[in-house]
Design a protein around this nucleic acid. Structure first.
Lengths: 349, 349
DNA sequence: AACACTTCGGAAAGCGCTCTCCAAATCATC
DNA sequence: GATGATTTGGAGAGCGCTTTCCGAAGTGTT
């Protein structure tokens, strides 16, 4: 049907289509883009020529003039690390990243929008990124910001690049974001642990300077205080399984009577489970454990983790929708969406 | 330092830089791209103008003429499913995807190459994709092909698009690929299980029509046969945890005396562990379990899984290197790399 | 039949950049 | 100092596409 140009040849251009159809380039363009009314007869002729030549519009050329690329960038903003730092590897291996991509794609695919992945580690890379974006490299960006104080969000707003963050920025920046009510999630965990009758309840947190983490800490503390637990033992890790195991050990050493623990993410919770088992504590009989994220690790753990469900896919999808409408309507005011987590009860608490 | 153009304004172009520096566009271009010798004085002038104007080259325009985008596409080729099919979500949530991205990025980042994500489900989308690629949408592609018989690899070679597959194509296609010696991995598992003294050994496989999966089956069968186990009970799942649990149940029903099982991936192995526990079997005392992948689930499982380590990041990195050199040298012959897996011994076997 | 109004196709001006070609300038050589 | 060989800067032709502008043709009204 479609006469593919012999491989290796110059590909057919709009010019070729126009010639074959016997019309001007302008008319061919109008037909192909469905713009304005075109005589049905010519219309037909053009499409036939498209079929015969095997024409495929060149997106680059089109973007150059329309100033629209049909591409959205997912930028992962990392703090300055060595190139060989294995951290990024760990980040990608964590289901977090994939869930975000999946959520974004579920929306972007429908709109025929592409996703381009960008990783920036240094300020120089950030500057270059913003420059490229202002130049129309992508129509907008979804930002996944890892460092506690990231200059990127501000750079983006100043550069007037349509952007949506997943997770609230640490500093106050007028940028759209989609976030989770981390404090509510922590309160859910507190409820469960206290409701179960736990007396001495500890917490294993993530790094204290990233917003998602500090919100979980403060939310947990506040909620526990309201229930008469004025002080709770705290150990912090870095969201990895190993750090969770270490934190659990230190918690157990300082407070042997611990009978409940809230862990700020599932991966660390799995580590905590290991430490607990090694210490001869049964879960949930001796120590109840509540995790956070409801990642696949929660279900795989034994016992399966009671955990705060983080609707990450939904949040990512929403951020994509937000970005898309922001791209269509530049005048859109900054608006953000906060999702409420729910508690998934399994066996660990 | 850099005089940012007021936001919302037209961005400075090469033309502007040339004017400010008092040279021609051609000279400015040459200086910026470091091409040919340029009078050191002009050189200086141009860079100064770049700084003063805050000029950032427009990649789109550049790509249009150079026919190089500095972008590589990661294509996930899926079989035709409903748009709302949750399968893709599961795929992204699995660490497999993230590990591939991480491996690719570790190489691409260094070369300043971007990664664009593409998902194609229907043949129409595949056709459009190849068209776009031939038009120079990306310099090459890394293909992650899911369906058993995917037309994409052949379309890509016929379209002369530089491509590297991760995982061997099911049909014989002259395309570069990076794969794992799945059969050797299966043999490693067989060794371990037999070496432990297991008498009745079963296997839980993935879908029988995808190469990675069938290679594990045939490799395991062959290796077991060589050790005197002419026939092994087989149940198959679809690589999900739930399917692993179900498969284990059916295996146990048919062969209550089972004392060893090789599971074709860790996620299913975790499911199998659950089924085993429910059936009152201790692991590894009653039944030894060997998984495949060494994903994070293996370490999180209890007991931690003995598993065949799949060096996915390394493979992805290698595929990126292969693609990059293929892009630089179009004449490069088809060449593939096969990685050998290793066995990671933990507690489950 | 003359007028204003609308509809529609084509010519051509770019979008921002690279790169070929040419002329001018520089250098070396005898 | 004249000649040829080599550098080096600028003019301008595109890359493939969209879109403005304009004139020609068609429609309807008095």
């Amino acid at each position: 049907m479609s006469g593919r140009a012999a491989a290796g040849q110059r590909l057919p251009t709009l010019e070729d289509v126009a010639r074959v159809a016997g019309v001007s380039r302008a008319t061919a363009s109008r037909v192909i883009n469905g713009i304005r009314n075109v005589d049905p007869q010519l219309h037909e002729l053009v499409w036939e020529a498209v079929g015969r030549t095997g024409y495929v519009p060149n997106r680059l050329a089109r973007s150059l003039v329309t100033r629209r690329t049909g591409t959205v960038a997912l930028v992962v903003s990392d703090s300055e690390t060595h190139d060989d730092d294995p951290f990024m590897g760990r980040f990608f291996a964590d289901p977090y990243f994939g869930r975000v991509v999946g959520g974004l794609m579920s929306v972007l695919r429908r709109s025929g929008v592409q996703l381009a992945l960008q990783i920036v580690g240094t300020d120089e890379q950030r500057t270059r990124l913003v420059g490229d974006l202002r130049n129309g490299q992508a129509d907008g960006v979804i930002v996944l910001s890892l460092p506690a104080h990231d200059p990127l969000p501000r750079m983006l707003t100043e550069g007037e690049v349509p952007a949506v963050m997943i997770g609230r920025p640490a500093d106050t920046v007028p940028i759209n974001y989609v976030d989770l009510a981390n404090d509510i999630g922590a309160a859910l965990a507190a409820d469960r642990l206290v409701g179960r009758g736990c007396q001495l309840i500890g917490m294993i947190s993530g790094p204290v300077d990233v917003p998602a983490s500090s919100d979980r800490i403060s939310g947990f503390r506040r909620s526990m205080a309201r229930r008469g637990h004025g002080w709770i033992p705290l150990a912090s890790g870095n969201f990895t399984q190993a750090s969770g195991e270490a934190a659990m050990c230190s918690l157990l050493t300082g407070h042997p009577g611990l009978d409940g623990v809230f862990v700020a993410n599932d991966l660390m919770a799995v580590g905590a489970l290991t430490a607990l088992r090694a210490a001869g504590r049964r879960v949930p009989q001796d120590v109840a454990v509540v995790g956070f994220d409801d990642s696949s690790a929660a279900l795989a753990a034994s016992p399966p983790l009671t955990t705060v469900r983080h609707p990450l896919e939904d949040m990512a999808a929403e951020s994509a929708r937000l970005l898309l409408s922001r791209i269509d309507d530049a005048s859109m005011r900054v608006s953000s969406v906060i999702y409420e987590p729910t508690l998934v009860i399994r066996e660990s608490a």
